[in-house]
Simulated scan of single mutants.
Amino acid sequence: MQISVSSTLTVYQDGQFWVGLAEHVGGGRYGVARIVFGAEPSDEEILQFVVGKWEKLSFFGGKPAEASKPAKNPKRRAREAAKALK
C-alpha cells in the first residue's frame, strides 16, 4: 500500500496584507488553509510558522485554525473604547 502526501505554502500580497495559502493533499483529499501574516514575513518567520504551527492548521474543516490576525487600527480602538465608556 502506497500513501502519498503533499503540502505546499504559497505566500503572496493580496493588496493590503501578506497572505499564505497552505494546500494539503493526503489520502485522496484536498484541503486549503489561509493564513494572514500582515506585514511582509521574512524567510525566518515563514520557517518558524511552518515548523511551529503547520500541524495545527485545519485543512479539512473541523475546528477553525488559529491564525495571526492583523491588529485593529489604533484610532478605531480608541473610538470603540470611547463609545463603550458612554
Rank of each mutant, 00 (worst) to 15 (best):
M1D: 06
M1W: 13
Q2K: 09
Q2V: 13
I3P: 02
I3T: 10
S4D: 10
S4T: 15
V5P: 06
V5C: 05
S6R: 13
S6F: 07
S6H: 10
S7E: 12
S7I: 01
S7N: 09
L9C: 05
L9F: 09
G15Y: 02
G15A: 04
Q16W: 03
F17K: 06
F17M: 07
F17A: 08
F17E: 04
W18E: 02
V19C: 07
V19W: 04
V19R: 09
G20K: 06
L21I: 05
L21A: 04
L21P: 02
A22K: 01
E23V: 00
V25N: 11
V25Q: 14
V25E: 15
G26Q: 14
G26V: 11
G26L: 12
G26W: 10
G28P: 14
R29I: 02
R29W: 04
R29G: 00
G31S: 06
V32H: 05
V32I: 07
A33W: 03
R34W: 02
I35T: 02
V36S: 11
F37M: 05
F37L: 03
G38I: 04
A39C: 12
E40V: 11
E40Y: 10
P41W: 11
S42H: 11
D43P: 13
E44N: 13
E45Y: 09
I46Y: 01
I46W: 11
L47T: 05
F49E: 07
V50F: 04
V50A: 03
V50E: 11
V51M: 11
V51A: 03
V51T: 09
V51F: 06
G52I: 00
W54K: 00
E55S: 08
E55V: 11
K56P: 00
K56Q: 03
L57H: 07
L57F: 07
S58H: 14
F59I: 02
F59N: 03
F59R: 01
F60T: 10
G61M: 14
P64C: 06
P64L: 04
A65R: 12
A65Q: 13
A65M: 12
E66R: 14
A67V: 03
A67R: 00
A67N: 01
S68R: 15
K69S: 12
K69H: 02
K69T: 11
P70S: 06
A71G: 08
A71D: 07
A71Q: 13
A71C: 02
K72I: 13
N73W: 11
N73E: 12
P74E: 01
K75D: 06
K75Y: 10
K75F: 12
R76D: 15
R76V: 15
R77Q: 11
A78E: 10
E80P: 05
A81F: 13
A81E: 08
K83T: 12
K83A: 10
L85Y: 12
K86D: 14
